[in-house]
Amino acid sequence: MQFISVVSVPVGDQDRAKSFYLDKLGFHLIAESTFGDGLRWIQVGIPGAETSLTLVTWFDEMAPGSLRGLVIDCDDLEQEHRTLTERGVVFTSPPSRQPGGVFAVLSDPDGNRISLRQAGS
């Protein structure tokens, strides 16, 4: 094995989710195409990162908004929190010190929870 390449994020509306991840979080679009019977592959990622996200609607067992436990590292969590808040990102918890670093939790439009972390702080 080498690394985790793609994490599936269950969403209800791919266009709304794509807009959130690109416009609010600052991800970039890696790939977008159709396949199968009207299904869409939308892959987004953080510039320079190896791991990316695909915004999925086709897994029945993955309800939109059910993602928990995804952690994205930041160099300066306080600044990232300010920037994203200014862009309209809603945080479910502000930056707080916990085992493993300082964390702040946000939700995407479907309710998927993503933790931002500044390690070693």
Rank of each mutant, 00 (worst) to 15 (best):
Y21W: 08
G88D: 05
N112R: 05
V105C: 14
I42R: 01
A49T: 06
R113W: 04
L39H: 13
L116W: 06
L53Q: 02
V71I: 15
G101Q: 06
P64M: 08
P10Q: 08
V102A: 11
G26C: 10
G120K: 10
F59I: 12
Q14P: 01
L70R: 09
T85H: 02
S33V: 03
G69A: 04
I4K: 00
L84Y: 11
G12H: 03
S33D: 12
G69R: 04
S52P: 09
P47D: 08
R117W: 01
E78G: 06
T51R: 06
P64L: 11
Y21C: 03
L106P: 08
V9G: 01
T34Y: 09
Y21L: 04
S33K: 14
I4A: 04
V44Y: 02
E32N: 08
L39C: 09
E80Y: 08
I30L: 15
C74V: 13
G48D: 10
D13Q: 00
L22V: 05
G65T: 06
F3C: 00
R97A: 15
D76Y: 11
P99E: 10
Q43I: 07
G120R: 11
R40H: 04
K24V: 06
Q14L: 00
A17K: 02
S33T: 13
G45A: 08
I42A: 03
G88F: 10
V11I: 01
S93K: 02
I4S: 00
S96P: 01
V89H: 08
R68I: 12
L29R: 06
G111W: 08
K24M: 05
I30M: 14
S8R: 11
S107V: 13
V89L: 10
V102N: 06
R113G: 01
D108F: 03
I46P: 04
V9E: 00
A17C: 11
T57C: 12
T57E: 12
W58P: 02
